[in-house]
Nucleic acid binder design. Structure first.
Lengths: 191, 191, 191, 191
DNA sequence: GATGAATGAGACTTCATTCAT
DNA sequence: GATGAATGAAGTCTCATTCAT
């Protein structure tokens, strides 16, 4: 909890903003150093190299995303509509608590620079929701589309809407969230 | 059909594959040259520079995408379910006819390298579907979500599923397409 | 007297020699880097780009040239023969103190890469001598040739002789200088 | 006297203009080709390469310059003032008949691309005037400066004034020429 | 003979990374 | 531990030269 973690988190913060806005390749180490108010060399005390930094950042936020979704799921398992509500609200909570993180995750989840650990962590996130959907399908509550497709619909839609909110093409409101949840549930539920 | 168009289209093809797979920044001119079986210098006979290349490629495919969607829409306008069917099938047709193009469009549509013409062309695409949705909302056939959100749901989902097909996480089949269409229509329609 | 000024002046020195000998276009950054014993990238820590380097170098030496000529002029203004003597000796002093600088200035003073500041600085140099000549003409001490032509004679001759000295076609001696001064004065003075 | 010599002289003309205005390095083969209204490849039918072209051009104009000066000299040898007059008028004639040639010769006479033949031809030019000056010195008509220095004064001044005329800083007139001749003779003659 | 499309060597420049301070 | 000056590999782009047409 000393000066060390302060510097590291400053580097994390600056990286998140820059990676989310400009992408991995277009972000330079000096940019991050300036954003974090540290020397360029200092970054290399905390991270082996630029790839290492992006991977640690990616894993950090994927984990936090996972926690946000997991939290609500554990409680209400029987009712799938309720379960979906918790997943959806967990996603919202994550984007609110970690402003640039979702865009960062989305735009970097296919990057060639991701190492095995990052990919595995990302898969965990997907698997969690997969399991939920699969169970719902067995109970006849959820559409019999390929579970990966269902996840694609859920995440793809959500992230795209999130982009619009961030770029201020859409204004976030309670109504929007409720309608969006309803729309996505309609896409997912067995009719 | 002389050597000219052959070289240029070889450069286009190689660029499309590389940009779609690795992104603009991570793709180098030598990579494109090798993929197109031309010398690096040749690329500069056909395109002013790397940015010019990505913009021309972007406009080309956005235009073709537009054509695919427009085609069906013009016929069946009254029935929105039918209209949606044509949009959806147009999207499918485009992805089948232009294997990497949709992923390229999606991953580059926010790039800082896009010039005004590219942005305008992309906007046309969005506007076309916007208009369709807006009309449907006035007729009470389509959900009253913000039209941009509806588009985000449609395109976001579709592209994400498309990614899964391309990465062979999902196998494309008539059933999948039918169910996906049904699911997305459920997300969009007024219930 | 830190490492900073050492590197920068090494780059300046190497540039001066190379630009003077080969010209701006035929001098490459790697050549300069090798001459200055620095990495090629280091040059870009001190100068924005190659043009910036040549402009800073040009301004530096034109300023020093100006100082050399100005110094003597300020004292003896009434006697034009004496004034000319000081201009001439100032030119000599400059070429002795800054071995390659005069040739560099001469061969680059018409370069398309010169920016406004460089041109203005060069003009100052010309104007100083112009004023001296104009005054001399009004007093009937100096030939009524166009002042620009007088300057052309003075500088053109001087630089050409300087070239011969540098290329060791002529050996520099007190006699040579005295005779040269006499010859140029004869060209300039009203007879 | 067919199409061949037409093309070659078109290439020569275009090269002269471009080399004189932009210099050897800043002039590209495509520029010359466009200026000469020939294909780029055609240039290589008439000249081995770019260096060969500049050397042939240089030799051609140095030779013509030599002829211009030689012509008048052969007649009046005893009177050095008269001899100088012919040299000077020969120089004028050359610049009038070959608009860009003198500037081309001057700005390229130190180029690293000049081959032995070019250097030898240039030396001939210098030697011709050298001999004249040396003879004049022996007769006590010409200043006892190093002959190379005398040539430097003559050519250096002349070329510099010529530059001013070309750049329209000075307007060419009979008076200017007469005064200039007088001034240069004053610089050269034994007083 | 004439052309200009094609090429690749080499120029300028950037930036991840190191290391002396 | 922190820094940022220094570096050189690698990227973009130009252009002299070749060669199939």
């Amino acid at each position: 909890m000393g000066a060390t973690s302060t510097k590291q988190s400053a580097i994390f913060s600056a990286s998140l903003v820059l990676f989310a806005e400009r992408g991995f390749d277009a972000t330079t180490i000096p940019m991050i150093a300036e954003g974090a108010n540290v020397g360029a060399g200092t970054i290399y005390r905390y991270f082996k190299n630029k790839e290492s930094l992006v991977n640690e950042l990616f894993q950090k936020y994927v984990k936090e995303f996972l926690v946000c979704i997991e939290k609500g799921l554990l409680v209400h398992r029987k009712d799938f509509r309720e379960g979906f509500h918790h997943i959806f609200r967990g996603m919202i909570q994550f984007t609110v608590e970690n402003p640039r993180a979702l865009r960062f995750i989305k735009t970097h989840s296919q990057g060639a620079f991701l190492d095995e650990k990052s990919l595995k962590e990302y898969e965990k996130l997907v698997d969690l929701v997969c399991d939920f959907f699969r169970e719902g399908q067995q109970e006849g509550a959820i559409r019999t589309l390929h579970v990966n497709a269902l996840i694609a619909i859920l995440f793809g839609s959500f992230m795209e809407v999130h982009s619009l909110v961030e770029s201020q093409h859409i204004i976030l409101s309670k109504e929007l969230l409720d309608e969006l949840e309803e729309s996505l549930w309609a896409a997912i539920k067995q009719c």
